[in-house]
Simulated scan of single mutants.
Amino acid sequence: MRLVFAGTPDVALPSLEALVASRHEVVAVVTRPDARRGRGGALSPSPVAARAAELGIPVLKPARPRDPEFHAQLRGLAPDCCPVVAYGALLPGSLLEIPARGWVNLHFSLLPAYRGAAPVQSAILHGETETGAVTFRIVEELDAGPVCGTLRTPIGPRETAGDLLGRLAVSGAALLTETMDRLEDGTVSCVEQPADGGTYAAKLGPDDARIDWTAPVEEIDRRIRACTPTPGAWTTLDGQKFRVLEALPTDLPSARPGTVERARRSVHVDTGTGRLELLRVQPAGKRAMAATDWARGLHADVIGFDR
Rank of each mutant, 00 (worst) to 15 (best):
V48E: 08
L95S: 00
A215R: 02
H268F: 15
D10I: 01
P65R: 09
R275V: 03
T259A: 15
D270Y: 01
E25K: 10
P257D: 10
G156Y: 08
L125H: 06
L43W: 14
V147T: 12
L110K: 07
G156D: 11
D163L: 11
R275H: 12
R280Y: 14
R287N: 15
E277L: 12
S171G: 10
I211L: 05
I138M: 08
L298C: 15
F70K: 03
P33H: 01
V269Q: 01
E54N: 14
R265Y: 13
W234K: 04
A169C: 12
D181G: 00
D270C: 07
V20W: 15
K286L: 14
G7R: 01
T236W: 06
R137I: 11
V170T: 04
S189T: 11
L43I: 05
V59G: 09
L279F: 11
E246G: 12
P33F: 01
G102S: 06
A100G: 06
E97C: 04
F242H: 03
L165M: 14
L3W: 00
P194G: 04
F5D: 05
T199K: 01
R223T: 00
R296Y: 12
G41C: 05
P206K: 12
A42G: 15
A100Q: 08
T177P: 08
F136E: 03
Q193V: 00
I98L: 05
V29T: 07
Q121R: 11
A202H: 05
Q282Y: 03
L279K: 13
V27S: 10
R182H: 03
V20L: 15
A291R: 06
G156E: 10
L176C: 01
E128K: 13
G41Q: 08
P62C: 03
A291Q: 07
A295D: 09
E178I: 06
